[in-house]
Amino acid sequence: MDIPAALSALARRLSPNATRALDARRLSGGASLETWTFDLDDGTALILRRRPPTGSMSQAALPLAAEAALLAAVDRRGAPVPEVVRICEPGDGLGEAYVMRRLTGETLGKRIVRDEAFAGVRPGLAARCGQVLATIHATPLDGLPPLATSDARGELARYEAVYRQSGAERPVFEAAFRWLADAAPAPVPAVLVHGDFRNGNLMVDPGKGLVGVLDWELSHLGDPAEDLGWLCVNSWRFGQWRRPVGGFGDYAALLDGYAASGGGEIALSRLLFWQALGSLKWGVMCLMMYASFASGADRSIERAMIGRRASETEADLVLLMERAA
């Protein structure tokens, strides 16, 4: 399939004054989803998200049309997301795909937590994340595309099953599964949860701060504290472990920003439960990705080595269990 040609053919429908697409190139990314960056000849900067015909769909991932519908829904609420320009139709020749505006900013977590350029926006970033999460979580559920619902106990059961299948014998994970099963908070009414709200999926501008929340493919309905806890998992603090919120802020700033924007009071203990579950999930995911090496499905060095990242979550979980003891 000639993606640049198909985008040129679509140019007029993406922007009234455009006649063709320029500089279309694929950004490195996952095998199941392609991301292309391109411009129109009237200067419009765009992104194409498409699933190649051979692209597998993981169980949890949303269809792209649903992802685009979600972006549009939270955009209407005022959340910072790229504006969806077109959900592609079969006649567009791009397969399952949509086009959105290209935001500019930094997504590399290491730079956001360390570079001098972001020193001015870092102090306000945790509160801003709270504000944005409150906005996302307040999205009316009527009219959203069909989304899976999950809660703490369901997630624990799902990941424990994956862990059992791995054949690994890791006492930190065994202890964490039992501890978290006992500590699971009472369910609350489910809200729209981003599902992967972490440093790395946040686009930050050195002057404007958080300008874009990206990668909505794991969105679902669930406990609002899930998103707050996931943001605080140490694996995405990029070395800045003393700043629990994404490596750039403090718990109080995140929770206060959340409450001040109408998100309601979330107890720190509830956030910490989801943070611990987040570390445990990431640890099990590392084992799961290693399993594709062990089975022979993907014998790459990358797939082998990812298994050795499970131990980072063990260190993080021990610390959280010591605090709870």
Binding site: Q240, R242, R308, R309, S311, E312, A315, V318, L319
Partner: peptide
């Protein structure tokens, strides 16, 4: 062994 520079070790 796996990741001596990982910040979680320093935190622990």
């Amino acid at each position: 062994i796996d990741q001596p520079g990982y910040s979680g070790a320093a935190a622990l």
